[in-house]
Design a protein around this nucleic acid. Structure first.
Lengths: 230, 230
DNA sequence: GAGGATCCATGCGTGGATCCTG
DNA sequence: CAGGATCCACGCATGGATCCTC
């Protein structure tokens, strides 16, 4: 996605929220026009397009560095596809899993915890019956894990990491974890990343990533005082 | 440089030499046409173009891996610009200098020695009065360092590496070395690569590379039984 | 619907070298 | 003209996610 227009990062949280309010109800096509970007026909070959569009119009800074999207504000932006108002359609990618450095790490300093510390959820209509250009942004909201949510996610994370430490990659399925899961994150099933076998030998396997299950993110859009999509 | 045509690597040294003989006397334009590549107006913004053209038409394999261009033959291809027949115009880049791993390395296992073990020198007319597309390939020849040449290069290399080990980057100038020298190898003078200060602390400096001085490569094109450019 | 498979953009490193100025 | 500065191509890794098939 070529950047045709450079937008300054918002200097305050208020400014970010003000910007994101202007997106609510607008179509992807309307928004893309403001930064002179073409809308692809569909996302089959442009899977990250919506997220990258949002980054641009909001003035996100990180590009592909492992920093929060709005570094100075400590806020991570996540667009989230909705099959219908209030119902997230897909799981949400959080971070890659490092299959080599499994020792000496803990929840407090983990990438997952950092990424989820303060998330700006931006819902986007994604029912297949609506063409990409006509899909609308919904009402975004800032979220930080409640004590209870963090407890469950942390437990999931620790359970997964424990298995990773023993090197039993085969035993780690996507079925593990209540809110958090591990899934492939690669160009294809033949991709190889660094890892260690269960005998501690350097090896190569399919790269994985941490994801939040959609069954969990759905709860964020249910009653509880948070805003909903449109 | 988009690859419009895939050419198989030569399976034998003879086949490689046969291919390269067909280049002698041809213009860059004629050769580029055979693989459907456009010739840039000049090399100011396409400095590696000639070398990459040669790689393609000869079926070199390495692209940007640190392997010989013709891996199975153990042969490294170097195009070399000639200001006039028999006179190399520029120094020749050999390899990058690793500014972090300076201990435990020696000449026998060095990248410089490996790269220079067996070089196919392919001269190319490069007088400024001739436009790029009209420049001709000359007669290439295979070269391995003579005992004496290797001795000088090895001494240069060891002298430079010794200074690197002490971390005194400031003391290492391009003036060091009889045949081999060290020079910047970067996008620009602000580029930073990893290094260690003279106190052993991780640091950052301008990346460097090893080059063969043109005063040396000129001697390769003087009398001695090797072919010359046209 | 869940798990496994896949796709684009962009930064950075490495390999290909030549440009340019005192 | 030597030393310092610079430029493109392309692979690989990371960050953005959604697709697709039981």
């Amino acid at each position: 996605m070529k950047q045709y227009k450079f937008i300054q990062p918002p200097s305050t949280e208020q400014e970010l929220l003000a910007r994101i309010e202007t997106l609510a109800g607008k179509t992807l096509s309307q928004v893309a026009l403001t930064v002179n970007i073409d809308v692809p026909e569909n996302q089959t070959t442009h899977k990250g397009w919506t997220g990258q569009l949002a980054e641009q119009v909001l003035g996100a800074t990180a590009s592909n560095r492992s920093e929060p999207d709005f570094q100075h504000l400590g806020i991570e932006l996540k667009t989230i596809p909705m099959s219908k108002p209030g119902v997230p359609k897909e799981s949400t990618y959080i971070s890659t899993v490092n299959l080599t450095k499994t020792s000496g790490i803990n929840w407090e300093t983990s990438a997952v915890r950092k990424k989820l510390a303060r998330v700006l959820w931006l819902p986007v209509e994604s029912d297949n019956s609506i063409s990409l250009k006509h899909r609308r942004f919904g009402n975004a909201f800032l979220w930080s894990p409640s004590a209870n949510q963090e407890k469950v996610i942390r437990t999931d994370w620790e359970e997964i990491m424990e298995l990773l430490c023993t090197g039993d990659l085969d035993k780690i399925s996507s079925s593990l974890g209540t809110y958090l899961q591990i899934r492939p994150k690669a160009a294809n099933s033949k991709s190889l990343g660094n890892s260690y076998s269960n005998e501690g030998i350097r090896s190569s396997t399919l790269p994985r990533g941490f994801y939040l299950r959609s069954s969990f993110t759905r709860t964020l859009f249910e009653d509880g005082g948070e805003e909903r999509q449109d």
